[in-house]
């Protein structure tokens, strides 16, 4: 190591090592909470406005990608699947190499790209994205997982830039109290937003799409 080596040169703010390029939005959350359905909804709703693409981190490579092809009207060259070697949280947080490769590949393939969704494999409540990979992250819970989940917290719930509680239409069936979920989320999230949605009742995910639009708008240009 050279003697004039200055650590400050290599320590930077989250994401500061890259400039410009599309807004990268992480989509995390437990298995079955509706990450892929939300990604597909956002692609449909925002696809006309923005040049966008998706990276999937499914356990079995092609499942989510196939779903997106069918449901998000995305051509194959806008979907990249990443293998995570049994460790979905590692691939989005500890060693983001494969995901960076996929995002950079999409950026190179589509030079006008404005928005990339990185959908994590289903994981637990502690899984969150590294800000070396994404700019903002959405954590997706569902009502059927139990109304106690927001209270349990964990980095996914507490630190995500947006918490989405999906499948509100199921609340009466599973005995979940939406007010409890709303209140507990607010309590553990220090003012960061939470949206309760039902993709079944409102398949455009308009509220989440609005939030994404706002992230693109407020983003400091390179």
């Amino acid at each position: 190591m050279p003697p004039d080596h200055n650590l400050d040169d290599y320590v930077d703010a989250p994401g500061a090592h890259r400039h410009g390029g599309p807004l990268r939005v992480g989509l995390g959350g437990p298995v079955g909470s509706g990450k892929t359905a939300l990604a597909a909804a956002l692609c449909r709703t925002l696809g006309e406005e923005f040049d966008l693409a998706v990276v999937t981190n499914d356990i079995y490579t092609t499942e989510d990608a196939d779903f997106l092809r069918r449901n998000a009207v995305l051509p194959d060259d806008r979907i990249e699947a990443v293998q995570t070697g049994c460790c979905p949280h590692t691939a989005i947080r500890d060693d983001i190499t494969a995901n960076l490769d996929a995002v950079e590949l999409l950026e190179a393939r589509h030079p006008g790209l404005e928005l990339v969704f990185v959908e994590s494999g289903g994981d637990n409540l502690t899984a969150s994205f590294s800000y070396g990979l994404i700019d903002v992250q959405i954590f997706v819970l569902d009502v059927a997982g139990g109304d106690k989940v927001p209270r349990k917290g964990g980095p996914g719930v507490t630190a995500a830039d947006l918490l989405v509680v999906n499948k509100t239409d199921l609340a009466p069936m599973v005995g979940a109290d939406l007010d409890v979920m709303r209140r507990d989320s607010a309590a553990v999230r220090g003012g960061k937003p939470t949206l309760l949605i039902s993709l079944r009742d409102e398949p455009t995910a308009a509220a989440v799409a609005d939030w994404v639009r706002e992230q693109i708008r407020v983003r400091v240009p390179a």
Partner: peptide, 19 residues
């Protein structure tokens, strides 16, 4: 000690996804 870093499985170089 650079060797320890280089051979560390936690070095984020993408190795964890290869078997």
């Amino acid at each position: 000690a650079a060797l320890l870093t280089l051979a560390d499985s936690r070095l984020p170089a993408g190795g964890h996804a290869h078997s």
